[in-house]
Write a protein that binds this DNA or RNA. Sequence first.
DNA 1: GCCGTTCGTTATAAGTTGTAACGCTCGAAA
DNA 2: TTTCGAGCGTTACAACTTATAACGAACGGC
Lengths: 224, 224
Amino acid sequence: MAETDTATPRERYRTQVRAEIKEHAREQIATAGASALSLNAIAKRMGLSGPALYRYYAGRDDLITELVEDAYRSLADTLHAAATPDPDPRALAHALRGWALDDPQRYLLIYGTPVPGYHAPDHVTVIANELMTTLLDACSATLPDGAVTPLDTHLEKHRRWAADHPASPAVLHRALTFWTRLHGVLSLELAGHFTGMGFDPALLFAAELDDLLTGTGNPPTHQQ
Amino acid sequence: MAETDTATPRERYRTQVRAEIKEHAREQIATAGASALSLNAIAKRMGLSGPALYRYYAGRDDLITELVEDAYRSLADTLHAAATPDPDPRALAHALRGWALDDPQRYLLIYGTPVPGYHAPDHVTVIANELMTTLLDACSATLPDGAVTPLDTHLEKHRRWAADHPASPAVLHRALTFWTRLHGVLSLELAGHFTGMGFDPALLFAAELDDLLTGTGNPPTHQQ
DNA sequence: GCCGTTCGTTATAAGTTGTAACGCTCGAAA
DNA sequence: TTTCGAGCGTTACAACTTATAACGAACGGC
């Protein structure tokens, strides 16, 4: 995993302790959410006293930031693996859902309610771009055909986020839609807004995915 | 507003103080998020000492619960007003977006990351049902035509959440889609995941709405 | 006007994050 | 091998937080 070979014993110990801290933090977040993360509790569980952790992380925010970064990294790797060698949107979607359900709090750590003042460091935006690239690759493997919407023309001029990716505005639109629709179902499912409603969220997710891919999955057309 | 007439002076004073507390809590949440809500800070701002607030609210959770309830009530009223007298999905969607942008933290209070252990009281589920009803009403004003999806047949048997509403499975499907797609765009926009990407979220929202209503708004069809 | 309910207070307990100062230990270099 | 410094863990402390307990004062119904 990490380069525990090429380093002084001190550094090896340090990275190992940092990893152990993150491990406890992850499990604590998975059970009680990110807002309930307590450095003191982690220290106590590791058998050492509170302030000791500050040798390894500057503070709570620093630890959370690294967890967010790890989550992004994990998601990017998972989606990249699912889209390799063939960039298949369907595989991508299922990988996304599997990854989210595997650890809901990890998904919410990325896409959930943000702290108003917090600003993500550059590492994260880099990975986010990487994520966007695999999504755009997958969406490029489809032939868009349909009316040009106002959003399409808008995206033609505002494609900074797609940077150097050679994708048509329609593909950009498609990628955004892919993202927002799947997130719409996933986030509500993870937040528990479907519990007690009685239906199976997996089928709703599948229906949205089908509609995304075939265009006739459903969203019943309007008429009035 | 409240029944400040028919009550003893003591009760009038109490409801007024409770309202003032909520007012401060709202503004505090709007600026720093729900997790940063501090009873002590509210008390200090109101010119009284910390524990005094416990005469009015049992604790932080109690206050937040009431704020959540108020938010649900406000959203339900707003959407109901937008769908009256004619249940128009388009008006409903714009009312939803306006309400969300008006106070993002209030939207996230309802649809954002939940506290794992927390369970909403009955009041909230009642209002949630009311909300669902206006959504179903609006979606009933459309004539669905399209292939019957697996989700449709599933919803035919699992329509407990629609209870006594006379809506076809296709309409139920449509309502769910309406909800998840708009939430998908809105939540990502409010969470700031579009900032820095350079495009206008309003156009994406509009595109999704158009597709929802006309069925040809876009999501470019797949082919391969 | 009495008297009890309600309110606001201070004091206290048990948490939290984070800083400061003090030794100990380990490892690298002489 | 011995020394010596960087890094680590400790306790002590400050400034917060939520929440409870106990006390006194004020308000209002009777």
